[in-house]
Design a protein around this nucleic acid. Structure first.
Lengths: 334, 334
DNA sequence: TTGTAGGCGTTATCAC
DNA sequence: GTGATAACGCCTACAA
């Protein structure tokens, strides 16, 4: 593997001139530049990132701390982050948290710092993670994605509350009053925001909300919840915090002889790729996870470069109405 | 940020001794070792990876070249790779291919080499990608994941053919003879293997197979195919190359008044998390994508270290029978 | 516009 | 067992 000096020798210049060409320094005569470029091509020379990092003190690397388990949203955001980062000349290293204890979070951040990342994006929707992060004051910029609470670190999210309100209001506008919320895990900021949107919508309509059912995002839990709610039988609609749980919920309902939307309406959140194809097709709130990822990266780069961060208005989720909602049974058959 | 010399000064030794302690060199007196360790802790010293990489010529970095679009399988494997790599002391950088042209593949490998990865795993199920990779002879080890064809590079995969055969034989054993295969894209090795399994099973049972329908893995395509196949109406069962397409297919069938499994049976591949909860619950072939990822990493590490690669027997997919299959209509109602 | 000197933080080599 | 010295490949600063 040839070095900058080999190129210099071949081009008949000093290694410093080669460095200038590589870094696009303006004061290099065009002829010299060409000779150097030729030599570079001829030797298939590639700058050594380690050597450069040693002196510039930056590897042009950003870290992603992920506490997700391959959900659709997180995966989409991650891909977007990676692409945007490379486009900006940074490479990306990902670290999956084994659990969300303060210890593993500390260890993970420490590890990423040891790897000399220039900044890091936390793809960690659990409130606890953002809190631990906020309380750590690592000496690199950190942007937390998909988290709504202000905390200390830079945070960013779609407007989950508005989306949830949209979903709930859709049910109410159809005539539902007995609307249950199947929520996400307590610790997740998104879960809280979506619940907030539900509560807001219910109270605005002068309906007293039910105590929410706490789920864990999985289809399996949704199924269990479906069976239980069918037993209770005191609601005509459910707002579910994500599509995957909704699919399980509908399954549970069916096992108990309840059909959606004939007997119960269901609205959920995310618009995963199969949402339009399951039976019934899901009425759901669509989010642009990729845009979210790109924006997180923009924010982080601004912080790394010490620029003033761009002003980013929150993304606006929108409701997609499909087959899982209808006017309530009791209303259509008085 | 303190350096090895700061530690040396504080511990009253030479920087070289500190280096020995860090690298667990045997010949350091225990007392000295402790003093150095204390100094390290006191200064919160962290080795500079760039400086180390400069002299060892390795960043302890492995690259993952991904040509997938967030499918369940690829995502699971990627996570497993990342975790296994970190456990082995390597960090991971991911590069998503914008497209699978030879140019982008070349550029991507080049980019990863510029980043000084010690080896790379291609999470690229398209045959073309493995071919381009095999023809490139980059000067770093490359392991290709989820690819069955031998090619030149190290490859690794679950036994897709066996899994597909299992699925098809299940249909045949139920009494189906008119079994259509909704395949994956032509270029994907997995798609080819699954088709091969279908063909094998059909021929073994002395049934002449249908020409397969080419899909693209998406639920949307599945839906289109469902509508078309319903028009044709010449089959009693479909073996679909993945669950997501199967969900779309069933949707398309339903739009045309065909119920699964009453009118048509469907078997698919992957066992994604919602497979058990959609209606009807999918009979499908389960694969352990995480194990696949871990094995890919094992193979790569062996190559990087110049060891003889471990002998890995292919993973054995298994069939999970749920509700989407039944005995054929024409047989149950003679 | 171009070249020379020095140093970034670490490991390897060879003394002692 | 420990230390001095020389790289590793590059960039910054300064000199020509």
């Amino acid at each position: 593997m040839s070095s900058i000096r080999d190129v210099a020798r071949l081009a008949g210049v000093s290694h410093q001139t080669v460095s200038r060409v590589i870094n696009e320094h303006p004061s290099v005569r065009e002829g010299t530049r060409q000779r150097v470029l030729d030599a570079i091509a001829q030797l298939d020379y590639r700058p050594n990132v380690a050597a450069r990092a040693l002196v510039t003190n930056s590897l042009n690397l950003i870290g992603v701390l992920s506490a997700t388990t391959g959900e659709f949203g997180a995966t989409s955001s991650l891909t977007a982050i990676e692409e945007a980062a490379r486009a900006a000349g940074y490479s990306v290293t990902t670290l999956n948290l084994p659990d969300v204890s303060a210890d593993s979070i500390h260890a993970a951040v420490r590890q990423l710092q040891n790897e000399r990342v220039d900044g890091l994006i936390a793809l960690a929707p659990q409130a606890r993670v953002s809190h631990v992060l906020a309380g750590m004051r690592a000496d690199i910029p950190i942007v937390t994605l998909q988290t709504a609470s202000g905390a200390t670190a830079e945070t960013l999210s779609a407007d989950q509350v508005a989306g949830a309100r949209l979903a709930t209001e859709h049910l109410i506008s159809l005539g539902h009053r007995d609307v249950v919320h199947l929520a996400g895990p307590q610790d997740w900021v998104e879960a809280e925001s979506r619940m907030q949107g539900y509560l807001d919508a219910m109270l605005d309509a002068d309906i007293s909300p039910f105590p929410p059912v706490r789920g864990d995002w999985t289809a399996d839990f949704g199924h269990t919840a479906g069976v239980e709610l069918a037993h209770r039988g005191d609601m005509t609609a459910v707002f579910v915090a994500n599509d995957v749980m909704a699919i399980g919920l509908i399954h549970g309902f069916r096992d108990m002889g309840l059909e959606v939307p004939r007997d119960v309406s269901v609205v959920s959140f995310d618009d995963i790729p199969v949402a339009a194809h399951v039976t019934p097709a899901l009425t759901t709130v669509h989010q642009d996870f990729q845009a979210l990822g790109r924006r997180a990266l923009l924010l982080l780069l601004a912080e790394i470069r010490g620029e003033t961060p761009p002003v980013l208005e929150p993304a606006h989720p929108r409701l997609i109405v499909r087959d899982s909602t209808a006017t309530p049974h009791t209303v259509t058959q008085p």
